[in-house]
């Protein structure tokens, strides 16, 4: 899996806890191990939650950035 663009993009903007995480779970299952999921959210709590969720699940949080109230996460499926 050398290709490092996101395999899938999930839009979780406008949703509040726990919906972005539930969407991330579905999203990560829709990509192959090694591939990247991109997720966009507007919930400010999601910044801490995505760090915690990737720690619990073992997936890799490659990037977590905020721009104009939109949080973008890049997560690599590890298993």
């Amino acid at each position: 899996m050398g290709d490092d663009g996101p395999a899938t993009t999930v839009d979780a903007r406008g949703l509040v806890c726990p919906m972005p995480i539930l969407k991330a779970k579905k999203g990560i299952e829709s990509v192959e191990v090694g591939q990247i999921l991109e997720l966009a959210a507007t919930d400010p709590g999601s910044m801490a939650d995505f760090k915690a969720w990737t720690k619990t699940t073992g997936h890799e949080l490659l990037e977590a950035r905020e721009a104009g109230g939109v949080y973008t996460y890049l997560i690599r499926r590890k298993k």
Binding site: C17, P18, I21, L22, A24, K25, W53, T56, T57
Partner: peptide
């Protein structure tokens, strides 16, 4: 329901 679904989404 929030804690339960989140725990399940974390693979628990």
């Amino acid at each position: 329901v929030i804690l339960a679904t989140t725990a399940a989404a974390a693979g628990m």
